[in-house]
Design a protein around this nucleic acid. Structure first.
Lengths: 158, 158
DNA sequence: CCCGAATACTTGACACGTCACCTATTCGCG
DNA sequence: CGCGAATAGGTGACGTGTCAAGTATTCGGG
């Protein structure tokens, strides 16, 4: 068992070895995602928002003024609608997002990012990008490429 | 841009390319973990528990009859105490876990898995292991090894 | 044109994760 | 021994993800 395995094994204070490389790999992916989530949460927290709220704001900014309805945001977040509705509720309460019932199809709710939201993103982006870069600092381009390829195949599995 | 990039780009319905390989990689890790979480949740749901509850039961089984106190379980889950307390509350309500105040040090709470808990794990393990194997089916041993190495370096970053 | 099916949410209930704070014990040192 | 610090947990409140239902609208076929 090499150093890397010792590390993950120790991180989890496991009393016995992994059943298989398969088990170790799934645990490693989940653990790594957790570490990243915490780092990103720490970056955005001082600005009074969460990583998910930051995601929504970026999605709305990406729409460049064109409205996005709740379902469209949800599909980009890979999340169920109910969660999105409440996420937008909180962002609206903070004045970072504006919503209005669509006149053409009154079932839809159009969402926009407000100037305050855009301003917050401007202040936040550098720190966020720095965190992304820092996380991958140890890998060279080929390694990142291989990582992306393997993860894509795992997502595609079954 | 290759096929793999197209895929992740499309999965998220993004309107513009990733800022950097770094951004793409962090998104890929978070997305992959999400996919795995959902698959595992689907495996354990028919048995009336969640993946986290399954984890706790496995940790307690690993103790082989020796008690584990709340903090010890939390450190293996990489989770704060409050969450663990309530996780155990739910497992105890289902009769899968038993708790008792330690007589030697009355601050501690000793946790054990019950026979019903062990029996549930026995029924659940094969399906769970099958899901783990299926997720990694597309990668050969060397690729899994490389993946583990890269993820470990990301977790260690900073 | 009308009604049942689809669509776009919304609400309620529950499982987590996290922070801030509080309680009960035990430790350790003067 | 006695008291303040450290340790183990529990509580409350909030953000988020998910399922099951419910509501408001629009669509589409007869």
């Amino acid at each position: 068992m090499n150093e890397r395995n010792e590390t993950l094994h120790d991180e989890l204070k496991r009393t016995r070895p992994f059943r298989s490389p398969t088990e170790e790999a799934t645990v490693a992916i989940l653990r790594t995602a957790d570490v990243l989530r915490r780092r990103f949460a720490a970056v955005v927290a001082p600005y009074g928002i969460t990583p998910q709220q930051y995601n929504v704001l970026r999605i709305l900014r990406g729409a460049r003024g064109k409205p996005l309805c709740t379902l469209a945001i949800g599909s980009r977040l890979i999340e169920q609608t109910p969660g999105v509705t409440r996420l937008l509720d909180r962002l609206e309460r903070k004045g970072l997002v504006r919503r209005e019932r669509c006149a053409q199809d009154r079932r839809e709710v159009h969402c926009f990012i407000t100037p305050a939201g855009l301003e917050l993103l401007d202040r936040l982006d550098p720190a966020f990008e720095e965190a992304e870069d820092a996380a991958l600092r140890g890998l060279d381009d080929d390694e990142v490429d291989g990582l992306l390829d393997r993860l894509a195949r795992i997502r595609a599995a079954e």
